[in-house]
Amino acid sequence: MVYVLCAMLLCVGIFGLISQKNVIKIIISISIMENAVNLFLVVIGYRRDGIAPIITERIHESVQFAEKAVDPLPQAMVLTSIVIGLGVMALMVTMALRIYHVYGTYDITEILKSRKKAE
């Protein structure tokens, strides 16, 4: 059920990516897809009633830590992926700004039209 909902969120992003004409909407779709994939990776590493993989004094003394904590590996990789996502988002936003300065619109069909006219 959780997996399917993650896939649905990803599909919302893919639908937007294909159908939208506005550059900002395309950036938004990519952002939604990113969130869905990150969430899915963390869900795969989840253990039922698991605790965060942080050793406190109480946990260290009382219970077997490795049998209670959730998987730290996907979390570390997703942390990397979130920050990279921000970098990519910044790059996409500046590209969109540049497009707006050159063509005066965010609509990709109008941009294509004016490019054809220029040729």
């Binding site: 963390v42 965060a52 959730v70 979390q75 997703v78 920050v83 996502g85 921000l86």
Partner: peptide, 22 residues
């Protein structure tokens, strides 16, 4: 909810910056 507090903090910060950019 999934036991990833580090990710939650990072996600909030990233989301705020992304909102400003957008």
């Amino acid at each position: 909810l999934l036991g990833a507090p580090d990710l939650a903090i990072t996600q909030i910060v990233v989301e705020v910056v992304a909102l400003v950019l957008l």
